[in-house]
Design a protein around this nucleic acid. Structure first.
Lengths: 232, 232
DNA sequence: GACGGGGCTGGAACGCCGTTCCAATGTCCA
DNA sequence: TGGACATTGGAACGGCGTTCCAGCCCCGTC
């Protein structure tokens, strides 16, 4: 009772790390963060879980590799602006749009930002800070602020996408925002006067516009402190 | 072979949601994010997994409840400063310190920030923005920027704590930072000139100081745009 | 004092996960 | 022609979150 059947005739397309990562991205995009499973991945690749492990160390590495592909694509597409500020905006928006299109990367961006290719993003942003005239001693601080903000927005967007999908998979984003705005509007006036007051702004806001407004706020703060007013 | 033994004589301390959440926090603080398990929790509470489910809906709710306790404690301890800016600093630092002491909350802060008690944090920050003179139409944007930054730093700190613990559980934080700085310093000079240049600043920096510097940068940007220069 | 129902308990079991193991296979070179 | 070896994929392991449910204790009722 022990012989195992074997029916492969040398797959026409052999497994490879590249093909595995590609399939993982498809799975993540269609089924969400929880959809990436070695079994599901094996089925999609018409193989078994064991075969995947010959090409990939484990799930963490697979997720990191998938995130890297998305971020690398986003960076390749990021336009170079006319001014340092516009270039920074473009880089930040490229990350924002990548998270928007693939919410599952949101949580992982922070995982190892000192590693490629997020490192490449911040290298490019850093150079623009230099071009903006931020002195060397302040560059780390300035970049850290931008980094936290960009990764924070990414994490929030990912969390929102998850919450929206979990709450009611059918609804679209504006329904979700409206429900949240309704929540805020019906808070206790004594305890949450401020939050109640901005409920309508939550309802009407555009995530992308708010994101770039935040970038501009931070760049304003940076240039006001460290860069000549002409530089921005 | 079917009778089950029953040896309880009505526990002296009955289970309760409060006791469960408390035990969960202890587990998370001592064993890390991965240490929270219904089995481990049951053992610590001298019961079985099933009993816990009578008081708590599931793991997500448990984690949220645990996070809420930590954040609520932090808020209760946050000092009220002399100026709006100082009060905002104090609130932000309270969140920062809470993440520092309990890294496992970092990732969950973003999960449902439109819910209590993170909502309470941002309500309080929002009121200070009002006191700062930020006009109503800009309050949502200003608060969003601060929110993304604060949650982003939290997520980054949590990720760093995780990475540090994973890489070498024995090392302390400065060893970890030094290793990262060494990494940066040994990058390709052509590809990463900027990152190489700030490696020594990474080595010497203080997370908490950098965090509050970022808060100040954002507040500068906000006040420069919207608030009278006297207000800050 | 008997008793019955419901709040509460906790151990067993289910299905799924990441991961490991390894017999079987295809390929290639001596 | 026959090994060595890279590669495959199914089975199995341990652990997870969760569900199920038999049993216990307490309390109200008669």
């Amino acid at each position: 009772m022990a012989t195992r059947t074997r029916r492969t005739e040398r797959r026409e397309k052999p497994l490879s790390r590249e093909r595995i990562v590609e399939a993982a991205i498809e799975l993540l995009d269609t089924a969400g963060e929880g959809g990436l499973t070695f079994r599901a991945l094996a089925e999609r690749l018409a193989t078994g879980p064991g075969a995947i492990y010959w090409h990939v160390a484990g799930k963490d590495e697979l997720l990191t590799a998938a995130t890297d592909v998305i971020v690398a694509e986003a960076m390749a597409a990021a336009p170079s602006g006319a001014t340092p500020r516009e270039t920074i905006r473009g880089l930040a928006l490229a990350v924002f749009d990548a998270v928007d299109g693939h919410p599952w990367i949101g949580g992982d961006l922070s995982r190892a930002p000192a590693r490629s290719p997020m490192l490449r993003v911040f290298e490019r942003i850093g150079r623009q800070l230099q071009a903006l005239g931020v002195p060397h001693a302040a560059q780390f601080t300035a970049l850290s602020a931008l980094q936290s903000y960009i990764l924070g927005t990414g994490g929030l967007n990912a969390a929102n996408a998850r919450a929206q999908h979990q709450r009611d998979p059918g609804t679209d984003r504006s329904d979700f925002i409206n429900a949240a705005a309704d929540d805020w509007a019906s808070l206790d006036p004594d305890e949450y006067p401020f939050t109640r007051g901005i409920a309508e702004q939550l309802r009407a806001h555009d995530d992308r516009v708010e994101f770039v407004a935040g970038i501009d706020i931070i760049l304003d703060g940076i240039t006001a402190r460290w860069a000549p007013p002409v530089g921005g």
